[in-house]
Amino acid sequence: MVKPIAPLKGNTGALRSAFVLGALFFSLSGCRQDYSLSPPTDSEKITVTVKLPKELKTETMWVMYRSATCKSIGTGASGQRTERDGHHSVYKELERQGQSDLYQVELPKDGGGACRWHLANVTFGVEYADPARFGESVTFGVGGGVVVIFDDNNSPRGGANIKVEGDLMLKEDYYPWVDEEFLGAYKKTINLASKGDMYLSYRAMQARIVYFEPVLHSEFLVSSAGPKEKKKGNHTTFTYPDGSVVADGRSKPDFRKLQAIRLAAEGK
């Protein structure tokens, strides 16, 4: 809220100056009085659905709205004043649909409010529900994430690798990847290895339905162990489901190799 200016007794010039400064401050800050979302009842909805494998759980969804009305004011490297669209984040849990394996959330495209918010992007994904099943003190690491951008801006995780026309329907293969790191503090994580980055990014400006089906190939586990000594030529060693061991400088598993091992085992 904009605070009222206290009366300035016996000083009309000061009062006038304070009023002008207050008006200027208000104009520069846009709708500073109310940044809240207030979606209209007839707002078009975007539905995000995840088909969840039994070993995984959904992550909390990060939803970002943007506003060209309420600017975010900052300072550039040279001290100059900068302006960019304001942003407003909310966090949503996807809700299970009955007793099915479908989890869903509906998001208003028009965020409304004095700032005229619009839905800009969402970040969501899946992770292991019980990392400890892979060993004591094992935690979830990375993988299984999706970013969908609905406007011309980048998301907090950058831009999009793929542009999609219409609705976005994703079905992706994932493999369990257990990684051990020895340099610095020891840690062991369970990750989800996929074909791309740990967050798959899409720009889908016309999408009204986003469907994500992660297919988890639990029986094809790949493990890796980082070097114990920081020395030239020491690389992370990967052990694949067929028993092959590779240390070729990669920082994550060879997805094509994993696919080939699985397809050969399945006789495809």
Rank of each mutant, 00 (worst) to 15 (best):
P241N: 13
N11F: 12
L258K: 06
R262P: 07
I190N: 00
D42C: 09
A77R: 03
S38H: 07
V215K: 12
D248T: 13
L168A: 11
K257T: 09
C31S: 11
E165L: 14
S218G: 06
A193V: 11
P227L: 14
Y128M: 14
R96Y: 05
F238E: 01
I209M: 11
G158Q: 08
S36A: 14
T75H: 00
A68H: 03
V178K: 03
H217D: 06
V90R: 01
F182Y: 05
Y35G: 02
N153P: 13
A193N: 03
Y174F: 13
Y202Q: 04
Y65S: 05
K92E: 10
P7L: 13
I190L: 00
G135Q: 02
L263F: 11
F124L: 09
Y186E: 01
D85A: 02
E219C: 05
V148S: 02
V138D: 01
E95H: 08
K230M: 08
P253Y: 09
K57Y: 07
K252N: 08
R208Y: 06
T139S: 00
E127T: 14
N161P: 14
V126E: 12
G79M: 12
Y174T: 12
H88K: 10
L37H: 05
A14W: 14
V63P: 01
K228W: 05
S224K: 00
P176V: 15
R32Q: 08
